[in-house]
Simulated assay, not measured.
Amino acid sequence: MEKRIIFISLTLFMMILNNVYAQSGQNTIEKQKFHLGKAGEDGAGYAQAVKVGKTIYISGTVGVGDAATALTNVYNGLQKTLAFYGATFQNVVKENLYTTNIEEMKKHNDIRKKYYNNDFPAATWVQIQRLYMETALVEVELVAVLP
């Protein structure tokens, strides 16, 4: 019985302590954000990239035009975002590619592959009906980890 009372007391104490800690604002995470166009990003409700700890989460970067141009522009844009944090494509651990034409992406995969320099991340490619930007052919989001 005494152990049970001690356990319940300790549990209640921890709940109170966690509540005080949460109310003090100490449970928030530190985010370092990167914006390409803050006004547009705020209007849509996102940040181009957010770094938490050593992990960088990069929002979808879009490409328009023919597949070769769209892919080159997307990966050049992603390269700039990575560079803001001192990262390269060798820090990328996950890639999600969304396109309205998967066959065109497959034909021009050599463009994408050169950015990774044979150090490829886990990747998912999905064909969808359309992207947020109606004229976009491709959108790529990344997760990268700093050493």
Score class of each variant (00 low, 15 high):
residue 2 E to L: 15
residue 3 K to V: 11
residue 4 R to Y: 08
residue 5 I to H: 09
residue 5 I to Y: 09
residue 5 I to G: 04
residue 7 F to M: 10
residue 8 I to W: 14
residue 8 I to P: 07
residue 9 S to M: 11
residue 10 L to W: 09
residue 11 T to C: 07
residue 14 M to N: 06
residue 15 M to T: 01
residue 17 L to R: 01
residue 21 Y to D: 09
residue 21 Y to T: 10
residue 23 Q to P: 00
residue 25 G to C: 07
residue 25 G to E: 07
residue 26 Q to W: 04
residue 26 Q to G: 15
residue 27 N to Y: 03
residue 30 E to R: 09
residue 30 E to F: 09
residue 31 K to N: 05
residue 33 K to Q: 08
residue 34 F to L: 10
residue 35 H to Q: 04
residue 37 G to P: 00
residue 38 K to E: 14
residue 39 A to K: 15
residue 40 G to D: 08
residue 42 D to M: 12
residue 42 D to S: 14
residue 42 D to G: 07
residue 43 G to L: 13
residue 43 G to M: 11
residue 45 G to F: 04
residue 46 Y to H: 03
residue 47 A to P: 02
residue 47 A to L: 05
residue 48 Q to K: 13
residue 50 V to A: 06
residue 53 G to T: 01
residue 53 G to R: 01
residue 54 K to T: 10
residue 54 K to G: 10
residue 55 T to M: 07
residue 56 I to V: 15
residue 61 T to N: 00
residue 63 G to A: 02
residue 66 D to W: 06
residue 68 A to S: 13
residue 69 T to W: 02
residue 70 A to K: 01
residue 72 T to L: 10
residue 74 V to E: 00
residue 79 Q to E: 13
residue 79 Q to N: 14
residue 81 T to I: 12
residue 83 A to Q: 12
residue 83 A to C: 00
residue 84 F to P: 05
residue 85 Y to E: 05
residue 86 G to I: 08
residue 86 G to T: 08
residue 87 A to L: 15
residue 88 T to N: 06
residue 91 N to C: 05
residue 93 V to G: 06
residue 95 E to F: 04
residue 97 L to M: 14
residue 101 N to E: 01
residue 102 I to L: 11
residue 109 N to M: 09
residue 112 R to F: 07
residue 115 Y to K: 03
residue 116 Y to V: 02
residue 117 N to R: 13
residue 117 N to I: 06
residue 118 N to T: 07
residue 119 D to Y: 12
residue 120 F to I: 07
residue 120 F to K: 01
residue 122 A to V: 14
residue 123 A to G: 08
residue 124 T to F: 07
residue 124 T to V: 14
residue 126 V to Y: 05
residue 128 I to H: 04
residue 128 I to L: 09
residue 128 I to Q: 10
residue 130 R to H: 15
residue 131 L to V: 06
residue 133 M to Q: 12
residue 133 M to Y: 14
residue 134 E to V: 10
residue 136 A to R: 00
residue 139 E to I: 03
residue 140 V to R: 01
residue 141 E to H: 10
residue 141 E to F: 11
residue 141 E to G: 14
residue 146 L to I: 10
residue 146 L to E: 10
residue 147 P to N: 10
